[in-house]
């Protein structure tokens, strides 16, 4: 890309999304990449692969078994529904229904006795029966969806009648 094109892109960043690209991705994890390109999680990874906040504005340990998550203000799903702490709680309750929701395995599961409690629209707290030093990494596979997603699709719900292995 030329310098002139790069300068023009800099100006375009102030404007609406523009352009279309066609992508060929034979990677066996394409299903996951599509998910990560269309859904949000409390955290993401940056270009170097390091965890950075996404839907969560912060994730702070109040004590060894209590993780406070502050949700970013003003986020909306594609259908216009606001994304709040209630969305996080709802999706947590959904994922906890399943024994092995994540294809890579049960190690991504939250503890079966963990709870998510909403304190206000932008604050939820994860109460864990024991310390979980890996929970932020698990958030990478904790996809947050709008109500209409759960009503119309769910992770495998409509197509297979089960969420096992479909998160």
């Amino acid at each position: 890309m030329s310098t002139a094109e790069s300068e023009m892109l800099q100006r375009d960043r102030e404007a609406d999304p523009v352009g279309t690209i066609n992508v060929f991705d034979p990677h066996p994890l394409n299903w996951l990449f599509i998910t990560w390109n269309t859904m949000e999680e409390p955290i993401r990874t940056d270009h170097d692969g390091y965890i950075t906040m996404a839907l969560a504005e912060s994730a702070t340990w109040r004590d060894e078994t209590t993780l406070e998550v502050k949700v970013r203000s003003g986020v909306r799903f594609q259908d216009g529904e606001p994304c709040t702490a209630h969305s996080i709680k709802h999706d947590f309750d959904e994922v906890q229904k399943w024994a092995a929701p994540h294809p890579p395995g049960t190690h991504l599961n939250f503890h079966p006795d963990a709870e998510c409690v909403v304190e206000d629209d932008l604050t939820c707290v994860f109460r864990l029966p024991e310390p979980d030093g890996l929970i932020l990494g698990k958030f990478r596979g904790f996809h947050i969806a709008s109500s209409s997603f759960w009503h119309n699709h769910g992770f495998g719900y409509k197509k297979t009648g089960s969420g096992e292995g479909h998160w």
């Binding site: 375009d12 960043r13 999304p17 352009g19 279309t20 690209i21 066609n22 992508v23 991705d25």
Partner: peptide, 8 residues
């Protein structure tokens, strides 16, 4: 930044 992405 893109309006559309099409996976082919």
């Amino acid at each position: 930044r893109l309006e559309q992405v099409v996976f082919v």
